[in-house]
Deep mutational scan, measured.
Amino acid sequence: MAAAAAAGAGPEMVRGQVFDVGPRYTNLSYIGEGAYGMVCSAYDNVNKVRVAIKKISPFEHQTYCQRTLREIKILLRFRHENIIGINDIIRAPTIEQMKDVYIVQDLMETDLYKLLKTQHLSNDHICYFLYQILRGLKYIHSANVLHRDLKPSNLLLNTTCDLKICDFGLARVADPDHDHTGFLTEYVATRWYRAPEIMLNSKGYTKSIDIWSVGCILAEMLSNRPIFPGKHYLDQLNHILGILGSPSQEDLNCIINLKARNYLLSLPHKNKVPWNRLFPNADSKALDLLDKMLTFNPHKRIEVEQALAHPYLEQYYDPSDEPIAEAPFKFDMELDDLPKEKLKELIFEETARFQPGYRS
């Protein structure tokens, strides 16, 4: 834990890192770190609560700039109880001085990944967590956004079992017609939660990839272990087919990539493993919904509104309290091709509203 900075004593240090967030945020305490930044909790002297502050230093890398800009653009436009918001952003007053960006968010005690390492969940908890994931996802999908990296560590939890989806750095506007060349190379989302079509096709992607990830998360809540822990690309596919069985001819016809289709045709026939054999203690309604989410063919996979209306979630289902976005989200430009200098300018502009004396 960093010592509390005395008023006016300059930035606090946390594990050798400068955290320049005073005077409003003090009493910093280390939480963890990701690929390009550290997260601390801090005391907000204005709202009198502890908050989470993520320090991001992305400006050396085009990919990190892209992810940072995506996350900020999306989260500043989203407003939903099951999606983490941005409360404040701290950065230098000029673009030349801006080396880091500090993002202030609600402090959540833990995440689903940490929880599943230590606790076996009751059916009631599984049901409530799944409902909140789908409630947040309904809003995301209504904005025409794909999260693309749903996994237990991106689901934040607090002691009252509130759940918030975080990390929109890989999110995209849904565009089933656009052929994202190089899709697989830039697709760094965790393999275990990846839909089979991501490994088999490169053309376009749809909201059904997020539903697949939610199915993987439900299976993990039922058993405290990942359902498809593939060691590499082909191993991942083999794990999936080992449980779902061989795809039907109709399902194979959806695979545009001939090499991928021929690979699947070359494999020995596998039978589907019954879900109640894998999860003998699970609620039968939970397994019915799991089956509809972990469907090989993305066109037959359940959609988020149908999933919310499934009998497993009937005690929570309330369409009048499951809000959607006001308007579909649009990125003005494809960020993939922009140089990091341009992305830095866009991050600077996007964060201006939090600067003292800002006038829109």
Rank of each mutant, 00 (worst) to 15 (best):
N158F: 08
A307Q: 03
E220Q: 09
P280F: 12
L294Y: 06
N47I: 15
F279A: 00
N297C: 11
I240H: 04
R79C: 11
V214D: 05
P58A: 04
N262R: 08
S213H: 05
R15H: 09
H178G: 08
W192S: 13
E350P: 00
I103M: 07
N45E: 10
Y25K: 09
I243K: 01
C254N: 05
D251E: 13
F331L: 15
W212C: 15
G34Q: 00
K203P: 11
Q62T: 07
C216W: 02
N224K: 14
C127W: 05
G34N: 02
S142T: 13
V214W: 06
F78T: 05
I198P: 01
T63H: 09
A92T: 12
L265C: 07
N253G: 10
D337A: 13
D179F: 06
L222I: 06
L155Y: 04
P268W: 06
E341Y: 01
L116S: 08
K344A: 10
N27E: 05
C166K: 10
D336N: 13
H269T: 10
D251T: 01
G245W: 07
E197Y: 09
N82W: 13
G204V: 15
L252Y: 07
H310A: 03
S202C: 14
R24A: 02
L28I: 09
F329L: 15
L121C: 10
V304D: 14
D210F: 02
L75P: 03
I133A: 02
L346F: 00
R191S: 08
A4G: 06
P319S: 12
Y113P: 09
C161N: 02
I217W: 08
K259V: 03
T26F: 13
E109R: 06
I126S: 10
L69A: 03
N87A: 03
L218G: 13
R353W: 04
S284A: 10
A3H: 04
L287R: 04
R15A: 12
D179W: 06
K164W: 08
E341Q: 04
L287D: 06
D321E: 13
L200Y: 11
S248R: 09
F78S: 13
E314Y: 01
F354Q: 12
I89E: 05
E334V: 14
T118I: 09
T181C: 10
S246I: 12
R301P: 06
T190D: 07
Y36L: 08
Y30N: 14
Q119Y: 07
S57R: 04
I74A: 09
E12S: 14
F329N: 02
L75H: 00
C161I: 06
L278R: 01
G10H: 05
S360F: 08
F59M: 04
N224G: 10
I347Q: 13
A4W: 06
D332Q: 08
N224Q: 12
G182D: 04
V188N: 04
N45R: 07
K292Q: 05
K342D: 05
A35H: 03
N27T: 10
L264S: 04
I243F: 15
Y113R: 11
